Amino acid sequence: MFVHGLWIHATAWAPWQALFEERGYTTTAPGWPGDGATVQETRDHHEELNGIGIEAICHHYADLIDAMATRPIVVGHSFGGLIAQELLANGYAAAAVGIDPAPIKGVKALPFSQLKSSWPVLSNPANKKKTVALTREQFRYSFGNTLTEEESESLYSRWTIPGPGRPLFEDATANFVRNSPAAIDMHQAARGPLLLISGTEDHVVPQKVTEAVVKLYADNPSQTDYRTIDGRGHSLTIDAGWADVAQIALDWITANQAKINPAEAATS
């Protein structure tokens, strides 16, 4: 099961799905609650995403998994990486891969590039109840900073959708809210294996932020692995080098088959 993050439509996972299916996996890439079936439908009816927060997104995917025959391996990017960790910690996933995952509660690092990337939303408190689209220039800084201008423009035109502001506000205030929806049981949850991947040049979720997440899991006896990909930004799942990232995830899943129920691992 593939879970997208803010501002990118679920159909951007199509190349990943094709690759994983070639390797024998059954895949699915459902959108967030309120997403349209296509990029254009979501752009045209973006108000359907107004006010959608982390808890609603988690429940949405948990309900989908409840209807499945087996627990899936969940691969998530950005906020999808946070959702993947939530599903894993709560027993909905057999294993999880979080790629440049949005920070969970407990992370204190706040690099300038991360603040600048989220500022189009956080700068206006009214955006908590609204859906916000990135401009081309904002996308270039946040996602396309390691790309040519032409590739950044192509990805922006093809895959971007407006995103609800609420998850960003919930994540930004997580350390000050007792029952934050961005909180995960890092310490005690008995769970399947988790892989976290960080692009070293990511502006939205800088490497030091993902490293802070890895440290939060340090005392959990369940397996947590970490990989970095040199020179890659937040676009790493959708740009021309996406297959390199997908291969890292596939190799890790293959290496950990003994720790993942084979019947479950082969279904999603």
Results as ranks from 00 to 15, higher is better:
P125M: 04
H9Q: 05
H77E: 07
D66C: 07
L194D: 08
A249L: 02
L196W: 06
I52F: 12
A69K: 14
H45C: 00
I184V: 15
K215F: 02
R43D: 04
D100C: 13
E151H: 05
K105Q: 15
F139Q: 07
L216C: 07
G98K: 03
A190K: 14
A109W: 03
E264D: 13
D171L: 14
T224S: 08
A182K: 00
L194G: 07
G34Y: 10
I8R: 01
W32R: 06
Q247K: 12
A14G: 12
S78L: 09
G98V: 09
I248M: 08
H59Y: 02
P72W: 04
T28V: 09
F143R: 05
G106K: 01
T254D: 13
P162V: 10
I260L: 07
V97K: 00
A190P: 15
G233K: 01
W242N: 07
K215E: 12
N179H: 15
G76E: 00
L122D: 10
S157N: 15
G231P: 07
D251S: 09
A102F: 08
I65M: 02
G241H: 11
H187D: 11
G36F: 14
H4E: 13
P125T: 05
L195S: 01
C58V: 15
V177M: 05
D66W: 04
L19T: 03
G165N: 08
G241D: 08
S117L: 05
A94F: 02
D230M: 11
I248T: 09
W159K: 05
G5C: 03
L236H: 08
A109L: 01
P33T: 06
Y156R: 00
L194S: 10
F139H: 11
R43F: 10
R166C: 12
I238V: 14
L49M: 15
L147R: 02
A183Q: 06
L110H: 08
L194R: 05
L168N: 05
E47P: 02
Q114I: 01
I161P: 08
T237W: 00
P103D: 06
A37R: 09
G53C: 07
Q223W: 06
A190Q: 15
G81S: 07
N145E: 07
H234E: 00
W159C: 12
G199V: 01
R140A: 15
P120K: 02
H59C: 07
K129R: 03
E153G: 14
D239A: 03
Q40W: 15
I229R: 03
Q114F: 08
V205F: 04
Q17F: 06
E153H: 10
S152N: 01
K208E: 13
H59S: 10
I260P: 13
G5K: 00
I65S: 12
G233V: 01
G53Y: 05
M186S: 09
N50R: 03
P181C: 14
L168E: 10
A67M: 13
L236C: 09
T42Q: 08
H9N: 04
I184W: 09
A12P: 00
I238A: 10
D171G: 15
R227W: 11
S180M: 06
A18M: 03
S142V: 09
N179A: 12
E264F: 03
A265P: 04
D44G: 11
E149M: 06
F20V: 06
A218Y: 08
